[in-house]
Computed example of a mutant assay.
Amino acid sequence: MGANASSLPGDSNPLTRPKLEDIPESCIALVLSYLDPPDIAKLARLNRAFRAASSADFIWVSKFPSNYPYIIAKSPDEGVEEKGKKDIYARLCRPSPFDGGTKEVWIDKRTGGVCLAISSKALMITGIDDRRYWNHIPSDESRFHTVAYLQQIWWLEVDGDLEFQFPSGTYSLFFRLQLGKIGKRMGRRVCNSENVHGWDLKPAQFQLTTQDGQHAVSRCVLDNLGNWVHYHVGDFVVDDHNSLTKITFSLTQIDCTHTKGGLCVDSVLICPSRLGKELISVDC
């Protein structure tokens, strides 16, 4: 009787109290499936039971974007689909370059939202082949390691287009720009503003258009000397995740009454609008 009484519920004996590792792995996995990936990763460090449960395929399948096979097909890694779903999710969170390395796609590790970046080298820039106007210069502040730098021009026109399969939802498009050329002096970041001029006279115009008739226009005076800024062009909505979405977008300042110069064009960013709100951005 005494032996049985020692194992009754509420017993204070530390040897008989339930422990975290006593929870069935299937129960742990079910709880983890309701959490965001960063929280799952934290709990996986608790003990072996949580670590094993965190690898359950059904947890990660629910986090995949609807177009994940389309993204995986662009991955340079062979055999990705043969891995466990947790490893596939981790691979999706790392940028996958495509179109000759001029574009990258990845998913946000917290929300699973699909994001894309388009290099300045994938954009059609008026005068880009004339070194009197533009140069491609190296930059360790760009994910593509290079930016387009404007010396001086009368007619600024930067155009781009994209055809991609997005999950359903609302997306924001940004141009990542900076006034001034960045360098280093004595190991410190410095901005050369020598060629910066003309941006305070007239605003730059941003546009985006989709194949189904969505259109957005914004105008903004560029004044971000020495700082990278995401200029918000506008938003678009994807209804059918099974179809390709076609987008065209542009940055222009075509008032030929004055020249302008000293502009760095890094890239175009497309991301779910809820993530776009978290950017250090300018909503024109």
Rank of each mutant, 00 (worst) to 15 (best):
L173A: 06
L150T: 09
D39E: 15
F58A: 02
N4C: 10
L201C: 09
F144E: 08
L269H: 02
R185N: 09
G84P: 03
E21G: 06
D212W: 15
T102I: 08
C256P: 05
F58M: 03
W228R: 14
V237M: 03
A117C: 07
Q152L: 13
Y89I: 06
D39K: 14
T111Y: 14
E78A: 13
E157R: 12
L32Q: 04
V282T: 04
V190T: 06
D57G: 14
V268A: 08
S33N: 05
R51E: 08
T111C: 05
S119V: 05
N224I: 14
W106K: 15
Q152A: 09
A5R: 14
N195F: 05
G160N: 00
S54T: 11
E194Y: 12
G261K: 07
T259Q: 07
T245Y: 10
A49N: 12
S120T: 06
L43G: 11
V31L: 02
D235H: 13
L269N: 00
F175K: 06
S168M: 07
N135T: 06
K277I: 11
F64Y: 07
V105K: 12
V238T: 03
Q151D: 04
S142D: 04
C93G: 13
T126W: 15
D161S: 10
V268W: 00
L123S: 11
S12M: 10
R91E: 09
K121Y: 00
G187C: 10
F175L: 00
Q151M: 05
T146C: 09
S55H: 15
L279G: 12
R189L: 09
I28L: 04
G100H: 07
D283N: 14
P138C: 06
L35A: 10
H258V: 06
R219G: 03
E278P: 07
P69N: 13
W106R: 10
E104G: 06
D108H: 13
Y133M: 07
K103F: 04
T170W: 01
T252N: 09
C271V: 08
L201E: 06
S62F: 14
I107F: 12
D77P: 01
T111D: 02
S168L: 05
G187E: 04
K83P: 03
